[in-house]
């Protein structure tokens, strides 16, 4: 097969995609690295020059950076906890034979198909608005003081919105895992005297561990770069209370026109994402081994 001729030909054939990949991946990364070492502000582009590690130093020592880092991790962690626990509970519920099961399942998945900006707007204006939001109305009807969600608990508000979007995904994956549990195993555990709670913790949960791992890994990738929900609702505020790394980089580049600083932030975000990925793979990756 692999004669010299076919090898040359195959190289020639895959060349375009390799070139495309390089162009799409390597060039932006290289440019970002390059800009991160430049003093380059769009308000004063003529004063562009090599800056050494200054941009990194400036970005890391900025008090907003540490807040953004914490917010990022809290946001990812919070959403993961809610979607995994909630996903398991909803999966158990949807696994029961109920009337109109098909319709209920489709309704349940639908939040996943709503664009982040749209769902964030709906939450902002219809649910969490302190004057005419549904939560405010519920609070008022109970005689309580309505909460001004985005002013008093901005990060929690965003966690709720994002969790609402990702809950269906987690539920769906966990439901398929649940349905693949061998019914004879369940019968055997029942004969062995396992009560429903023991059945869940000894049989069902270990069976779902692989699916949970997949959900955690996939969600983490997307949650590290949450942006639209923050832009639409709190704009990172009040102060930096709901600013995550992505939003901080955006603020640097497009609000302060500091391209160099934003590039440095981007590189830091890439490194952070890799650290998280390594941790996750170390911690739960063994679940994926067959």
């Amino acid at each position: 097969m692999a004669t010299a001729h076919t090898r040359t030909l195959s190289r020639l054939m895959i060349a375009p995609s390799v070139v495309m990949l390089l162009a799409w991946m390597a060039i932006p990364l290289a440019m970002t690295i390059y800009f991160s070492f430049q003093r380059y502000n769009l308000l004063n582009p003529s004063r562009r020059r090599f800056a050494g590690w200054f941009n990194y130093e400036f970005f890391v020592t900025d008090p907003a950076f540490f807040a953004a880092l914490t917010n990022t991790l809290v946001l990812v962690g919070g959403v993961l906890v809610i979607t995994i626990v909630g996903g398991i509970l909803f999966a158990l519920l949807l696994d029961q034979p109920i009337f109109g099961q098909g319709i209920v399942r489709i309704l349940f998945i639908s939040p996943f198909f709503i664009m982040p900006t749209v769902s964030a707007l709906i939450w902002k204006n219809m649910m969490m608005n302190p004057v005419f939001g549904i939560f405010a109305n519920i609070a008022k009807s109970l005689g309580l003081q309505p909460i001004d969600w985005f002013a008093s608990v901005p990060l929690l508000s965003i966690i709720i919105i994002v969790a609402w979007q990702w809950l269906p995904f987690a539920t769906l994956i966990l439901l398929t895992a649940l349905q693949s549990l061998d019914s004879e195993q369940r019968d055997a555990a029942e004969m062995d005297g396992a009560k429903p709670v023991a059945l869940f913790f000894y049989i069902t949960l270990p069976h779902m561990s692989r699916a949970i791992t997949v959900v955690v890994l996939i969600e983490t990738i997307f949650l590290l770069s949450i942006f639209a929900e923050i832009l639409v609702t709190t704009n990172g505020g009040p102060g930096v209370a709901s600013t995550n790394l992505t939003f901080l980089i955006y603020a640097r580049a497009l609000l302060q026109f500091d391209v160099g600083g934003a590039a440095a932030g981007g590189i830091i975000a890439v490194i952070l994402a890799n650290i998280v990925a390594i941790f996750l793979i170390r911690m739960i990756g063994k679940n994926l081994e067959a």
């Binding site: 004879e184 195993q185 019968d187 555990a189 029942e190 004969m191 000894y202």
Partner: peptide, 20 residues
């Protein structure tokens, strides 16, 4: 309930708990 009947069953698929 099954457990109360003091019977034991061996299944065709063995139904062992794979993670234990």
């Amino acid at each position: 309930a099954p457990a109360k009947r003091r019977l034991a069953m061996v299944f065709q698929s063995y139904a062992l708990y794979p993670h234990m």
